Simulated scan of single mutants.
Amino acid sequence: MSNKQLITTIGIGLAAASAGMLTRKTLQKSWEKVTNEPAPKDKPSESTDLKEAVTWAVVSGIGAGAARMAVRYVLDKRKSK
């Protein structure tokens, strides 16, 4: 793998990870506005209902995953041109 390919691959990975983190932060803020409660944390808590924790896990997982996938898709398309 050449240096240019390596740098491009690392750049795509960093962009995808950044998109995932930004999406997760945006979803946290949205969750707080809608529910008037902070988003559940990763560690189990007695104050967090199981339904709420599962809903948050699904919403944040799908949102962050879709954002990472979209960024990788767009950047891979641009790289192949």
Rank of each mutant, 00 (worst) to 15 (best):
A57V: 06
K51H: 11
A17D: 03
L14G: 06
A66F: 14
S47D: 12
V59Y: 01
E46A: 15
W31Y: 01
V74W: 15
A64Y: 11
Q28F: 01
K77Y: 12
I10W: 06
A19F: 08
W31I: 09
T35R: 03
E32D: 00
T23E: 05
S18I: 15
N3P: 12
A67E: 08
K25P: 00
N3F: 12
M1E: 09
G61F: 02
V34K: 03
G20E: 04
P44L: 05
G65Y: 10
S47P: 08
D49S: 11
A16C: 09
R72A: 15
G63L: 01
E32Y: 02
L27T: 09
V58K: 11
K77N: 14
G63N: 09
Q5T: 12
T55S: 03
A15K: 09
K81T: 12
E32L: 01
D49Q: 06
A16K: 13
Q5L: 15
V34F: 02
D49K: 06
E52H: 14
M21K: 08
A70L: 07
A53P: 07
N3L: 09
L50V: 11
R72Q: 14
I62F: 07
L75R: 06
K51P: 00
D49W: 12
K51I: 08
T35M: 10
I7D: 04
N36H: 07
A19L: 07
A39N: 03
G20D: 04
I10T: 03
Q5K: 13
L50N: 04
L14D: 09
T26C: 02
R72S: 14
E46F: 15
K29Q: 06
G63S: 06
K33V: 06
S2L: 09
K79P: 07
G65R: 00
L50E: 11
S47M: 09
